[in-house]
Each structure stands twice: as C-alpha cells, then as structure tokens.
Design a protein around this nucleic acid. Structure first.
Length: 564
RNA sequence: GGCGAAGUAGCUCAGCUGGUUAGAGCACCGGAAUCAUAAUCCGGGUGUCGGCGGUUCAAGUCCGCCCUUCGCUACCA
C-alpha cells in the first residue's frame, strides 16, 4: 500500500462549470481516486474553489453581493454539485481560507529569503469611474491595427494581434464604459522565475513518462525564456501582502490558487487535528512515499508545470512537487467551444437536471479528450449510453437475474460443474482484467473504459454459449452453472465499474447483497472471482438499471442547449 | 507572425522506439438465438492513413515543403 495525493485544477468561483471543464479535471481525478482506493492505497483527493481575482469581484458586483458572501454561496453551490456528481473528495476547500492565507504569505517570505522576489514599479491603467485598476482585458477600444471597435486590451479578437491597452484608440472600461482612464504607477512584487529556468528544465527533462501534451507546453515556456512574474495586484479581495508599502495590495490569484492544494489539505486536517496530519502529505521526509498526481485541462498546464513548481522549489524548503501531471485537451460541443456567453454546451447543474451522474461520468470518460480534442454531440452521447450502459451492461444484469429468479428462485443455485464455456470466459477475463487495471494505472481513461465495455460484453458472449435457458429444459444442473457464473459476473462487473459509475455499481452490489466492505479491486485469477458468491446466496432483481435515452429527448436537448 | 497539437473507414477514435493482407466501437447489411430494457451473439470494410517530394530493402509511423483545423502567445482565470 502506498499513499497517493490527488488534486484537480481548482474550479473558478464565478459560476457553475461546464462539462468541458469537468472532464479534464475533477472527473478523472475522482475516477482515479476511486480506483486507487479500491486497490487498497491510501488516497487523499483534494479540490477547492479558486476564489480570488477580478472576475470574482465583478461577478459579485453583478450579483449585487459583497464578494465574500458571493464566494461563500458559490462555493457551496459548486460543492453540492460536485457531490451530486459523485466526486469523492476527501476535502473540498476554499482558496480564501485562513490556512491558504498563511501558507501563501509564508511562501512569499521564503521566496524572498531565497532572493527570488523583487519589487518593481509598474504602470497600469486605472479607471477613475470604476475606482480600480483594470486588467488589460477589461479595457476595450478600437484596435490600432484593424480598426475593430471592441478589441480588448490584451488582444484583438478580430485580427488576433497582441495589444497593449495604451495602444487602443478611444479606450474605455469594459465594466462601466467609463473613459476616465489614467496610467498610474504602482509598486509590485515580481517572482524571478528566470532564475529558476535551469532547475525547472532539468526537472521537466526527468519526467520522461509524462504526456507529450504536458511536457511540450512546459518546454515551450522554458524555451521562449521565462519572464519574471508579477505576483501582486491592486485589488481589495485576495490574500493581503504582509509587507510595508503593500497595505492595499493582494497576491495575484495564480500565485495563491495552487498553494491552496496545500491549504485545502490543512483545512482538511484542521477539522480533525488529532487524527489528520497535513504535513505528512506535503513536506519533508514524511512525504517521501507520497505519489502526487495532478489533473487539469491544457490551459492550466503552464501554471502547474512551471509556476507552482517555481514556488515550491524556489522556497528552499522540502515541499512535495508533483510526480505526474495528467493533462487533457478540450471537449468541444459539436466541434466548437463550450461557451457561456453564446449559451452553447452543457453545464454541470443542467446535466444533472436531465440525467443521472453516472450517464455523464461514463460517456465523458469513454470519450475523454486525451490524445486530442474530443467532440460532444447529443447523438453520440445517446448512442453510447443506450448501447453500452443500457444494452450491454444493464440488460446483462436484468436478463441474468430475471431468468434465474424464474427458474431457480432468488438465490444462487447449486449444481453443475464448470466446462469449456467457463474456461473460455476465464481465459478472456484474466487477460482483460490485467489490461483494464494497467490502463487505469497509466491513467489512460479512454482505453480503460473501452476495456471495461469489452469485459461487460464478455458476459453476454458467455451467456450465448452457455445458453442456460435452453439447457434448463433437459439438464437443470447444466443451466445452474450458467446462471451461477452469470451472477458472479454481475458482482465482478460492479466492482470493476465502480470508479466510473459508482451509483449503478452500488445498485448492482445491493441487488446481490454484497456490502461495500467486500468491494476491493478484483484481481485474478478469474476462476476464483467467478465462485465468490456461493450457492444459496440470496439476491433481488433490481429495477431497470439504465433507462434509455429517446430520440425525442435528443431533439429537445439539442434545441435547448444549442445544436450543430 | 511565432510556437504547439492534430488531420487514419459514414461517425467517434486506437495505432509505442518504421516491418506479415492498417485496427476498435457506433451506424449499416446478412445470419443465429429468444433468458432479457425489440435487449444479445456471430459474420461482413476495394479506407489514395490531408497533399507533394525525399530517406530506406521496407513509412500511417522518419525528413522537407504545402493545405486545413484547433490551441497557446504569459498579468483572464
């Protein structure tokens, strides 16, 4: 048994996330956490809301709330939705916690001691009408290169030129529209990432098993020359900078957000200080045996492969640095971006309104954007759910248990001996069990789910050969071995499916009267697994496990959420 | 513009360090079966592996150029 620390990119506080956000972070992190727990490892799965920054302030403003209240509410909403999706977090924290405040300030002090912090004076745009400094993107105006009238201060969406806000013609605040903009000088702290380049490169070079997606993004940043990064902001909402002359400033959200992985672990420990030791997961000798895995979409990779490691390594203290980064591409909606503003795509709360969590979990993991971007369409989604979950798995459970009940009653029957059909099944299962487990170990989710589906299908193939319904007419015992094997297959399928579809899996185990305590990860030999439930073991026939999706529903949802 | 990823059967995707007749699932066609959510099982693919050229005994798999799509380009998180 080993210890595995799992974190997923923190969902930003300003509203419920869409499926495209979830599929690359929280969902695979949960699937992996469930898998490793079943394998018998000690897992700590941590997530939190990322609550600082200008967008949070503006969202609160729009909601007519003060930002602290807004964040508290949104945190609870996101937490509830996550729980309803089956996310088995050990702790879901908040980057605005006192624990994170202390840690963030601590890291800044340590980085300073290590000579990696420098004060510099910046000139930034200040909006008199809004009473605040504005990030580049919140200044709009006419693009000096193409004349587009709504170009943002960081980049023109029309001609894609990279801009500086002071170059905009007729610049105005994107928030208030106010034109009273001034360039004001402001003192800030810079993290001297440039001094860490060699160390970071050596570290990245040592990660030969990481996805190409991740290392290529990290190398790109190193190759282009790491800029020093400003880690403070002129905002009210955030972690205060404890330093003379910085009384009205807070840390940049991207500085404190990753630190919240540690902060949330402390929050978790602070709930039960007698029995939980946060430091043993993160610091020094005690954390030597921890394997730390992060999950995120590709947009987050630079901050996790460069930014956060700079903080940890640069501190000069023995903090645990990530061992493996699992990065994902985008999930697209009919080939285009999921978009809040254009009302394209499905958000987590909406998804749960229309179908159970397991449907989404299964589809999204089966089609995870691992090798490249992947496309979500309602037609593909419905087809996958109906075929894989309802027909191949759900119907297998139903046909097996109903037939057994009608001929033998509601208990595993005795009689009969394994023969050629069982031998073939066992041979196939032994191979597939190994492959399935390996795919999960390597975090190859698409392949894992494809293997899982093949394992379910092997049950149907077996029944076709065993044909207990035909044998029963002449030879009761020959039929008995068939259904006994079938019922044990249901147990096996439930145990194997649990990381992906925990609710359905739970219903299968419940029907068989198997407690969660016996739900350890099944390892071969398959022959023994198929004799786990002995003759006489009672069962019940559950309701239909997976309801099919109708064409009419596909049409309705396509219209509601924006289709092709 | 620069950089990165990718373009493989109707659809969604596998194909590691180059090597027998390029694979899977879905869809489609045919057959079997009838325990089951009309659910299952078996069989069926003449695909210019984006295009052109090159290296090699041998290239989807390496090199160059071109076309297309998507992303990043660092104070939006």
């Amino acid at each position: 048994m080993s210890r595995i620390l799992i974190t997923s990119a923190l969902p930003y506080i300003n509203g419920v996330k869409h499926l495209g956000n979830m599929v690359g972070s929280m969902l695979p992190a949960d699937v992996y956490a469930r898998f490793q727990r079943a394998r018998g490892h000690e897992v700590l799965c941590i997530c939190a809301t990322d609550e600082h920054g200008t967008p949070a302030e503006l969202a609160a403003l729009e909601a007519g709330q003060d930002v602290a209240t807004y964040c508290a509410e949104q945190h609870q909403i996101q937490k509830d939705i996550g729980v309803r999706f089956g996310f088995s977090w050990d702790y879901f924290g908040r980057s605005s916690s006192p624990e994170n405040r202390e840690l963030t300030q601590h890291f800044c002090e340590k980085l300073d001691e290590a000579g990696l912090i420098e004060e510099r004076v910046d000139e930034q745009v200040y909006s008199v009408d809004d009473g605040r400094f504005l990030p580049d993107r919140y200044i709009v105006g006419t693009c000096p290169k193409c004349g587009y009238e709504n170009a943002r201060g960081d980049q023109c969406e029309n001609c894609t030129s990279v801009l500086d806000p002071v170059d905009l013609i007729d610049a105005r605040s994107a928030i208030s529209g106010g034109v009273n903009l001034e360039v004001r000088a402001s003192r800030h702290l810079y993290l001297l990432q440039s001094k860490m380049v060699d160390r970071l490169r050596a570290w990245i070079d040592s990660k030969t098993d990481w996805p190409v997606l991740v290392t290529s993004i990290a190398r790109k940043w190193l190759d282009e020359g790491l800029h020093d990064r400003c880690i403070t902001r002129d905002l009210d909402w955030g972690i205060p900078v404890s330093r003379p002359g910085f009384e009205n400033k807070v840390f940049y959200v991207w500085f404190d957000a990753p630190i919240e992985y540690i902060g949330a672990t402390r929050e978790w420990a602070d709930e039960a200080p007698g029995s939980r030791d946060w430091k043993s997961w993160w610091y020094g000798e005690a954390a030597q045996d921890v394997r730390y895995v992060q999950f995120m979409g590709k947009d987050n990779v630079p901050f996790h492969s460069i930014g956060f490691p700079t903080t940890l390594l640069g501190s000069g203290e023995p903090w645990k640095v990530v061992d493996y980064i699992k990065g994902f591409n985008w999930l697209t909606y009919y080939g285009g971006k999921f978009s809040t503003s254009q009302k394209r795509g499905v958000f987590m709360d909406q998804a749960l309104e229309i179908l159970p969590a397991d449907y989404w979990r299964y589809y999204l993991m089966a089609n995870a954007p691992e090798g490249s971007d992947a496309s979500f369409t309602w037609e593909h989604f419905a087809g996958t759910i109906n075929k894989d979950l309802a027909d191949v798995l759900g119907n297998f459970v139903n046909r097996t248990l109903r037939f057994t009940k009608s001929k033998f009653g509601e208990a595993v029957p005795d009689g009969g001996m394994p023969g050629a059909a069982e031998a073939n099944l066992i041979k196939e299962l032994d191979a597939r069990l190994e492959a399935y487990t390996q795919h999960f170990e390597r975090m190859e989710f698409r392949k894992a789910v494809a293997e899982l589906r093949a394992i379910w299908a092997s049950g149907n193939e077996y029944l076709t050969v065993a044909e207990p319904w035909a044998k029963f007419k002449q030879d009761r015992d020959a039929a008995a071995i068939g259904v006994r094997t079938g019922i044990n297959l249901i147990r096996l399928f439930a145990l194997l499916s649990q990381p992906v579809i925990p609710t359905i899996s739970g219903k299968m185990l419940e029907a068989l009267g198997v407690s969660g305590d016996d739900a350890a990860w099944p390892t071969g030999p398959a022959a023994a697994l198929l004799e786990a439930l002995k003759p006489g073991h009672p069962f019940t026939v559950p309701d239909v496990l997976v309801q099919k999706i109708e064409d009419a529903q596909v049409a309705e949802w396509t219209a509601r959420f924006g289709g092709a």
